[in-house]
Amino acid sequence: MTTTDTPSTAAAPVASLAMITLDAAETEPIAQFWSAVLGWPIVHLSEQYAMLTGPSHALGIGAIPDYQRPSWPDDGRKQFHLDLAVEDLDAAAARCVELGAERPSQQPGETWIVLRDPAGHAFCLTDAAAWG
């Protein structure tokens, strides 16, 4: 079965994805960063929680006491990351760095660029044309 095939006996989905929430030490810097990167408005901002809304999903940022930044490279401990489709990899990476992202020296390939947001969350910029 390919990833686009659905078995005819598939049950109705249990849920739909409404929001992804990132942990951070502080909400405002991460909310500002992701708002600038994605162009999504910040609809709620407090010291404990922030929320951005996109066309069909939301991004939350929750303040966590004693937050520890994820590492990169991560030796397989990273649990997830965001893949962002962009028209120009180098221009998008440069803009993200201007906004506060870090570009680690270790990069795993040539068709994407790994960056870290100001709280240390890894995310990848990928060529939009590769996504169809």
Rank of each mutant, 00 (worst) to 15 (best):
E110T: 13
A24P: 06
T9M: 09
V43L: 08
Q107K: 07
L99D: 02
P55E: 15
T9E: 13
A15M: 13
V114Y: 07
H57D: 09
Q48I: 08
T126Y: 11
S8I: 12
G100S: 06
P70H: 06
L45Y: 03
K78W: 12
E47H: 14
D127G: 08
T9N: 15
H121V: 02
V97C: 07
R116M: 10
S46Q: 05
G62K: 12
A11L: 14
Y49H: 09
A130L: 15
A18M: 13
Q79W: 08
L99H: 05
L99C: 07
Q106F: 14
S8L: 13
L52P: 01
L125Y: 00
P65S: 09
Y49Q: 02
T111G: 12
A12S: 15
A31F: 04
T27G: 05
T27H: 05
P70S: 08
I113A: 00
C124Y: 03
S16M: 13
Q68C: 09
T27S: 11
I42W: 03
A119Y: 02
P104Q: 06
G39C: 04
A92G: 04
Y67W: 09
D117C: 06
D117R: 04
D23P: 10
V86Q: 01
R77F: 12
H44N: 13
R69M: 07
P108T: 03
A50P: 03
L17E: 05
I61R: 01
P29G: 01
T4D: 12
H121Y: 04
R69C: 06
A119Q: 02
A63D: 00
A31R: 01
L115H: 01
E98S: 14
G120N: 07
P73T: 06
A85M: 08
G120C: 09
E87P: 00
L84R: 00
A31C: 14
P13T: 09
T6I: 15
A129V: 13
A128C: 10
A128R: 13
L84E: 00
L89M: 04
V114C: 12
R103C: 11
I30P: 02
I64D: 03
A18I: 08
A31D: 07
A119G: 03
G76D: 08
D75Y: 11
P55C: 12
H121P: 02
Q79G: 14
Q32L: 13
D75F: 08
R103P: 04
L59W: 00
D83A: 14
S105C: 08
I30V: 15
T126I: 15
E26C: 10
S46A: 12
D66A: 12
S35T: 04
I113W: 00
R95Q: 15
S71K: 15
A18S: 14
E98R: 14
A11F: 11
G120E: 07
T21R: 09
A122Y: 10
F80Q: 10
V37P: 03
S46I: 08
L82H: 06
I61Y: 00
W34M: 02
H44R: 15
V14M: 15
R77M: 14
A11H: 11
T3M: 14
L125D: 02
F123Y: 10
Q68M: 12
S46Y: 07
D5C: 07
S71M: 11
A94Y: 01
Q107I: 08
W34E: 01
V43C: 08
W112P: 02
G132F: 13
A93P: 03
S35K: 01
C96K: 00
L52R: 02
A129C: 05
T53Q: 15
Q107G: 07
